[in-house]
Amino acid sequence: MGEALIDIKGVTHAYATEAGPLPVLDNLNISVPEGGFVAVVGPSGCGKSTLTRLIAGLMKPDTGEVWLHGERVKSPRSTVGMAFQNPVLLEWRTILKNVMLPLEIVSTPMSKREQEERARHLLELVGLKGFEDKRPSELSGGMRQRASLCRSLIHKPEVLILDEPFGALDAFTREDLWQTMHRLKAEEPFTGVLITHDLRESIFLADQVVVLSGRPATTQYVMDIPREGIPTLDDLYTPEAADRLNILRHQIEIAQGRAPAEEAAE
């Protein structure tokens, strides 16, 4: 796949600990084509967050390479947008000013007016119209996460990195935000990597699901999800969806070491 926008090639990484090196990623390969949205699932502590930091250029892998848009990632770049489980909004700024924060760092051809219009437009897209001048503390957890998504997209990043952004939300709010994500993607096409623990989330949002093995993580299983238009929550309750979830759940059990791998099962 030569046209990959995000290309992770044979990445291996270990953390130095007092007990010696702790390998977290082992010869990991993931590639995401332009406009693609890949969900990465795997057991806890398998190095998923390390992966996001590598793609964002916040860390360098021990061996292997991360490429974004044909350029090797060596340091942070302004063409990346990030959102975390913790929305990390700045309490002393209004929601609008929070969303516009990245524009104070990266250079943009937009005028001040265009910047603000874009921020307001994004907030409207995620259903936060009327909350522009509120403080983060006046918003619910789900609303804060919506604002955080707007902030990650404000500077029109080529790559969106989402590290369990919906992990701390209740189930209904989460499903609501899944639909918001589809609305956003329809209007603001991006290439994305989504780290998640939620298998339903992965098949609802992504067009490819990558299952990582237990630590040190490597690509254990890849599932392509065919996409035709924007899915509805009903699509999660079809026999196909149930089959996919079953397969993924089984793969996670293998990754956790709770179920033997196919070859070893004999």
């Binding site: 930091r53 964002a56 250029g57 916040l58 340091s75 942070p76 770049r77 302004s78 990346v80 990030m82 975390f84 913790n86 990390v88 700045l90 309490e91 002393w92 924060l101 990245p102 104070e104 760092i105 990266v106 902030r151 500077h155 990195i161």
Partner: peptide
């Protein structure tokens, strides 16, 4: 200061002093 606060600016290529003035200092007030 939670590492995510640094990361949202650092991932955009912000310098240490920008992170200090925009986030660390007001957050410590």
């Amino acid at each position: 200061l939670e590492p995510e606060y640094r990361d949202i600016l650092r991932s955009l290529g912000a310098s240490q002093s920008t992170i200090f003035w925009k986030i660390a200092l007001p957050k410590t007030l």
